[in-house]
């Protein structure tokens, strides 16, 4: 075990990005192939430890995403989904812990700290009712340059020109070859829970993320 206080928020951020994308799709109605961009999205993560009373939470408010969206008979279709979270934007509320996180989770062997990225070719959303839809995004999530399959299901609700997307996901550190962070007897679990909660307002034909909520 190496040093402590580290976690994988980037993953969460990516998921949030995906989330946002979905939200946008729900807002785009009959447009064909319109481009949707998300800025300042929020992603949050939580990971438990071997000590019951201790878990680690973190978030980023700097998630960005781009995708194309069009409508099909089955529902909104999202294509060319790309989302990213800068590693330096991830924080747990404790500076030293954040440094450890970046060093031991997100730094490559050559000293680089690439953004956490999510990409998916296509996702189809299904309408649950007039105001809600569900989008399953399946693609690849890259942490410190290593890609692994990643899926997140987002529930998107529409209220006027405001869209809200909520979803949960999970990332396994070992799948990325990342050793579980450990510090002074406290070791994180291998599974990292991701929580996405994003609100967007439609501005003209292009919705833009305006706020996120941390869970």
């Amino acid at each position: 075990m190496t040093s402590t206080f580290v976690w994988s928020r980037p993953i969460v951020a990516v998921a949030v990005a995906v989330f946002a994308v979905t939200t946008f799709a729900a807002a785009q109605s009959a447009d064909q192939g319109s481009l949707v961009e998300v800025k300042n999205g929020t992603a949050a993560f939580e990971v438990g430890t071997n000590v019951g009373a201790i878990s680690v939470h973190g978030k980023s408010n700097d998630l960005t995403a781009r995708l194309r969206m069009r409508q099909s008979p089955e529902g909104a279709v999202l294509e060319g989904i790309e989302a990213a979270v800068p590693v330096k934007s991830l924080g747990t509320g404790m500076g030293l812990r954040d440094n450890h996180m970046r060093k031991y989770i997100f730094t490559t062997s050559d000293g680089q700290q690439p953004d956490v990225r999510f990409s998916a070719d296509k996702a189809v959303c299904t309408k649950a009712d007039a105001r809600q839809s569900t989008c399953e995004l399946t693609g690849n999530l890259a942490i410190r340059g290593t890609e692994r399959p990643f899926t997140v299901v987002l529930k998107v609700s529409e209220d006027g020109d405001t869209l809200r997307a909520v979803g949960d996901g999970k990332v396994t550190l070992s799948a990325y070859g990342i050793e579980r962070p450990s510090q002074l007897g406290v070791t994180t679990e291998d599974n990292v829970k991701l929580r996405f909660d994003l609100t967007a307002k439609q501005t003209g034909s292009r919705p833009v993320a305006t706020s996120g909520r941390r869970q």
Partner: peptide
């Protein structure tokens, strides 16, 4: 920042008294 009770950092779960090793790390951090 998510430390919901004293047991996280104190040897005594009621709090007060010496910190455990993790608590001393948090104290310094």
């Amino acid at each position: 920042i998510g430390y919901m009770d004293c047991a996280s950092c104190h040897i005594s779960p009621q709090g007060g008294g010496p910190l455990n090793a993790y608590g001393r790390g948090i104290d310094e951090a």
